[in-house]
């Protein structure tokens, strides 16, 4: 296997594994799938409810603290993806990737999220990530 091919393969796998399909149950018109951002913050609240679970967390940047909100799917879908009502507790540190809303507010749709113990969870059942694999 040539070096060039190996590099291409390695990069392709990485890019492919991070591409996602955006198809919310409802309301995907508010999101811009081309705008994704990785965030690190502290969990304030995790709401385990329909129609979508919502994570409230604070991110500190050079201008101070920004209060973020990010939604996932409903508890049924999230349970199938390995999430628990107790996956995120206030005070936990969190790392996640979100798709941002078009209006620029600190709101997103979760692509993946990493819990305080390092477990990485899929946020979208149709996302083309190994951890989001359809069974």
């Amino acid at each position: 296997m040539s070096g060039k091919f190996l590099i291409f393969w390695a990069l392709s796998i990485s890019v492919l594994s991070l591409s996602i399909r955006l198809s919310a149950h409802h309301g995907n018109a508010a999101y811009d799938s081309t705008k994704q951002v990785d965030l690190k913050g502290t969990v304030m609240q995790f709401i385990w409810a329909n129609p979508h679970c919502v994570l409230l967390f604070d991110v500190t940047d050079e201008n101070g603290v920004v209060h973020w909100m990010a939604e996932s799917e409903n508890p049924t879908t999230m349970t199938n993806l390995g999430w628990l009502k107790s996956s995120f507790k206030p005070g936990d540190s969190i790392t996640l990737r979100v798709i941002r809303v078009k209006n620029g507010r600190p709101i997103g749709r979760i692509v993946w999220a990493e819990t305080a113990d390092g477990t990485k969870l899929c946020g979208e059942p149709g996302a083309k990530l190994p951890l989001c694999g359809e069974r």
Partner: peptide, 24 residues
């Protein structure tokens, strides 16, 4: 080899945490 190895390793690192299986 010096170029390929770090790129492959980086790709593996990017993908590895994603490989955790879901509990049903």
């Amino acid at each position: 080899k010096r170029i390929v190895a770090p790129v492959v390793a980086a790709a593996a690192m990017l993908s590895a945490p994603l490989m955790r299986s879901q509990t049903r």
